[in-house]
Computed example of a mutant assay.
Amino acid sequence: MIEPAPGVVLISEPFLKDPNFMRTAVYLCEHSEESSFGLVMNRPFEQHLEDFIPELRGMTIPLFYGGPVQTDTLHFLHTLPDLIPDAQLVSDGVYWGGDFASIIDLIMAQRLELDQIRFYLGYSGWGTGQLAAEIAEQSWLTVQGSADLVFHDAPEDIWKLAVQQLDKSFHPIIHYPTDPQLN
């Protein structure tokens, strides 16, 4: 396992009971000793971006649940730093944020492919020492993230794909039931 840092993916252990993080993969955008900020990559939201942005009515753009913190905020990851000003590099080929008006213009002009950007409501956050403690308790496993993982065309598979990046001894957890008492 690797230490938390921007671009690292947190993989929830298979029996984590917290409904916000059950079988999730969280992409860390920021990490320091004081706090960590990440986005759940594999939890589609029941509504679409058009439900929140009136200019996009009629465009079915997927939206994801980024985490339980400030679910009234919108965040985005993308691969388009040349088209979206003020984007922040997180790791190889993955950028966070930028000028949202530029994104609306790109969408309206049909100059943006949906496999190049993901939108998230809310985020996942940890205060001083909280993430380190959760990792020590083995609530999270860690792997290096990638654009291929973040923008995978089957988000429901991201947790399993992240687990497959771990040592082979971890691979059986993919098949564990969510509730071992039901086994």
Rank of each mutant, 00 (worst) to 15 (best):
E156A: 13
F76L: 08
F119A: 04
D51F: 07
E156K: 13
S32K: 09
L80V: 09
P81Q: 08
F100H: 03
D148G: 11
A132V: 11
D51R: 07
L121H: 00
F45E: 10
E137Y: 11
F64V: 04
I117N: 00
G38H: 03
S102E: 10
V69H: 04
P81G: 10
A154K: 15
L77R: 03
F100A: 07
G145L: 03
T60A: 12
A133Y: 11
I104K: 02
L89Y: 08
D92K: 14
L80S: 12
F100I: 07
Y95P: 04
L56N: 02
W96K: 04
A87I: 06
A109T: 12
L28W: 06
L77Y: 02
R43L: 10
E46N: 14
G127K: 09
L89T: 13
F52A: 08
Y95I: 04
D99L: 08
L149S: 03
D72P: 01
F151D: 00
R43V: 03
I53N: 00
L74V: 05
V143Y: 05
L63C: 08
I117A: 01
P44R: 11
L28A: 07
L83D: 12
E46F: 12
G122S: 05
I61N: 05
H78L: 05
F119K: 03
H31W: 09
L80M: 15
H78E: 07
P81F: 08
T79L: 11
L131G: 00
I61S: 05
E30P: 01
S36A: 14
L77A: 00
T60Q: 14
L74W: 05
G67Y: 01
E113P: 00
D105E: 13
M59W: 10
L112I: 06
P62D: 09
G127L: 07
G127E: 13
L121S: 07
Y65E: 07
H75R: 05
L63D: 02
Y27D: 02
L121T: 08
G125P: 02
A109M: 10
V26H: 01
L121G: 01
Y120E: 04
L74H: 03
P54A: 08
P155K: 10
L56R: 05
F37L: 15
Y65V: 05
E46A: 12
W96N: 09
G97S: 06
G97F: 08
F119P: 01
P85C: 07
F37Q: 04
E113I: 08
G129M: 11
D105A: 10
G122Y: 00
S91P: 06
Q138D: 14
A109V: 05
N42W: 01
S32Y: 11
S139A: 12
P44K: 04
C29G: 14
V69C: 11
D105Q: 09
I103M: 02
I135E: 02
L49F: 05
G58F: 07
V90A: 08
V150L: 06
